[in-house]
Structure formats: structure tokens, C-alpha cells
């Protein structure tokens, strides 16, 4: 428990540091949301100044940071100038969509990576192993962008799957089960894309962790005892190989989130990705800060989960 407390504290400090630096960085950015308004000859400089004052934009940096922290405590994270609403409520549905997408892609890719990795490690050098390693090394050098674009092309050409968005236009009129089906259809393409681009790295790591364990003396001994092969693989070797895989889980969240940003933009999935790009283009900096903060919360939470899992699974750490 002490271990968990320390990890939590550490994560909190890092988040605080990120918020401070994100704030510092983006507040020192040249230009603001009202740049476009200043260009407009029909809006007087006075109006812009009044608006700036209204949003507290001419206070000093520290005052604004304190204001922002207070707003964060309320769950608002400042005001989005482009949307004219607090940032928090704007973010939550977007964050939910991103989490849904990355979460299911994560499950999908692990569900593929573990059996494939275990099998190819068990049959090292066999045909399955060779196909898998060819597949991983090919996919690793194909840019994510290209994978997503090709998936989109497939959807546009075949019409089997919707080519973007999260729901169809007539979503509101559908019955509940139809809504679920519609959602699932829209879900398929981005989730598949994310799973495809994250699979090769996972597969490679699962395989190498398993190969290492399968070479170890205790597995050889188990074989010598005549324990069935499948039992050795799944009940002995896989748990023994789990530690590096749990750490990998924490790391894979980062790549998954980054890849998700691209897939969301290309397949217009209403997650955090399109939001941050829109916010950057309109210089809606509070939204940028909010999205950046949320993405790091996801990553840190994922690493925390990995740490806890590691703590539970590895007796060596628990004893300490």
C-alpha cells in the first residue's frame, strides 16, 4: 500500500508539473484567439480589449494559472473561447470516445498478440512463426498514416463499412439495438486500424518474452516431468513471461494514444484528436491545455495500472 501511495504521489507531482509547463508554454505563445477579430475592421480595438479583460487575459501569468487551477477543481479547466463554454464539459464526451476507441483497440490487439506470440514462440522457426515475423517486420515499417488511409479507401470503395464519424445521420431515429449496431459499424474501422498498427510491436515482445521463458531450466524440467505441452505453455510459461508484458502494457498506451490521434482525424472519429487540431488552428489554447492534460492523465493512469499489476504479480516487489 505504501508502494501504491508513493506511485500515486509521484503521478500527481508529474501531472502538476505538466499542467504548469503546459500553461507556461501556451501562455507564452504569440497571438491569441482574438487575433482573427483584430483583423476585422468592424471590430474596434476597444471591444477586443474588453473581451480580453472579461476572460481575465490581461492578468499576470501566475494569477491566471491560479484561476485555471481553481477552475480545474470545478472540472471546468477554463473557458473555450471558440465554443464559448467551459473546457471540461467539452472534453468529457470527446475523452469518452477516445477512451472507448483506444480501449477496444487495446483489447483487440492484445487478444491477437498473446495467442499469436505464444504460438510462434512455441513453434520457433516454424511456418506460423515465420509468417508472424514477416508480418510484424512488414507492418512496422508501414507508416500508420498509410494504414489508416488504405482502410479508409477500402471503406469508401466497398461501402461495407461507414467511412467516418461515430454515428449515421439518422442515428436519433433508430431503435436501441439499431443504435448499438450502427455504433459498432462505425467503431470497426478505427478500432481495426489502431489494432493493426499496435499489433506488431506487441506481438514481437510477447514472442521474445516467451522464447526467453521457454528456454529457461524450469520449463525444461517441466517438460522432463511429462507435463502436457499446452499446459506448460499457458499455465507455466505465460505467467512467467507476464512481467515484461505488463510493463509493455503501460508503454503501449502511449503509442496507442498517439496513433489514435491520427486515426481520429482521418476517420473523423469525434475524439480528442480532431478537437486538439481544431483548437490549435483557432488558437483556442485552453482546449489545447485540457486535451494535453487529459492525454497525460490517460497515460499516467495506464502506467499506474501496469505498476499495480506488476506489484500483484511479482512477489519480489511485494516483499520489499
Amino acid at each position: 500500500m505504501k508502494f501504491l501511495g508513493r506511485r500515486l504521489l509521484h503521478s500527481g507531482v508529474i501531472l502538476l508539473a505538466i499542467s504548469f509547463f503546459a500553461f507556461l508554454l501556451l501562455r507564452s505563445a504569440p497571438g491569441d484567439y482574438f487575433d482573427a477579430m483584430r483583423m476585422n475592421p468592424r471590430v474596434s480595438a476597444e471591444t477586443v480589449e474588453n473581451l480580453r479583460a472579461q476572460y481575465g487575459m490581461n492578468h499576470s501569468f501566475l494569477v491566471r494559472y491560479a484561476d485555471w487551477m481553481g477552475s480545474l477543481a470545478k472540472g471546468d479547466m477554463g473557458i473555450s473561447l471558440a465554443y464559448g463554454t467551459p473546457v471540461g464539459p467539452l472534453l468529457w464526451p470527446r475523452a469518452r470516445n477516445t477512451l472507448m476507441l483506444t480501449g477496444s483497440a487495446m483489447i483487440l490487439s492484445w487478444m491477437l498478440a498473446v495467442p499469436l506470440g505464444v504460438w510462434s514462440a512455441a513453434a520457433k522457426g516454424g511456418w506460423l512463426d515465420r509468417i508472424c515475423s514477416l508480418f510484424t517486420s512488414t507492418l512496422l515499417v508501414i507508416p500508420d498514416l498509410l494504414v489508416f488511409l488504405l482502410l479508409l479507401l477500402m471503406a469508401v470503395r466497398t461501402g461495407w463499412l461507414p467511412s467516418g464519424g461515430m454515428t449515421s445521420g439518422n442515428f436519433a431515429d433508430l431503435a436501441v439495438w439499431q443504435k448499438a449496431g450502427d455504433l459498432a459499424l462505425h467503431f470497426a474501422l478505427p478500432a481495426l486500424g489502431l489494432a493493426i498498427v499496435s499489433l506488431p510491436l506487441l506481438l514481437r515482445h510477447v514472442r521474445s518474452a516467451m522464447v526467453e521463458v521457454l528456454d529457461s531450466p524450469f520449463i525444461r524440467a517441466a517438460r522432463g516431468h511429462g507435463i502436457p505441452r499446452s499446459r506448460i505453455l499457458w499455465r507455466f510459461a505465460l505467467p512467467a513471461a507476464s512481467n515484461p508484458l505488463i510493463s509493455l502494457f503501460g508503454l503501449s498506451i502511449a503509442t496507442m494514444l498517439s496513433a489514435s490521434l491520427i486515426v481520429e482525424v482521418i476517420l473523423s472519429w469525434p475524439g480528442l484528436g480532431p478537437l486538439i487540431i481544431q483548437a490549435i488552428l483557432s488558437r483556442d489554447l485552453n482546449v489545447v491545455i485540457g486535451v494535453v492534460m487529459l492525454s497525460s492523465v490517460f497515460l499516467i493512469a495506464g502506467n499506474l495500472i501496469a505498476d499495480v499489476l506488476l506489484f500483484v504479480s511479482d512477489p519480489r516487489i511485494r516483499v520489499e
Binding site: 505538466i18 508554454l25 505563445a29
Partner: peptide
């Protein structure tokens, strides 16, 4: 190294975008 931790606690592309956002368009 703690500074490095902060950098690594952000998904890379989001970090890239955040810094890009701080620069003029």
C-alpha cells in the same frame, strides 16, 4: 531525470502538438 519523466509522461504526438500550438500558425 525528473524533467525527462515529465516529457515522457505525455503521449508523444500530443506533446508534439502542444508545442506546435505554442508557436505561431
Amino acid at each position: 531525470m525528473r524533467g525527462g519523466d515529465v516529457f515522457m509522461a505525455l503521449p508523444w504526438l500530443y506533446l508534439l502538438f502542444a508545442v506546435r500550438a505554442a508557436l505561431p500558425l
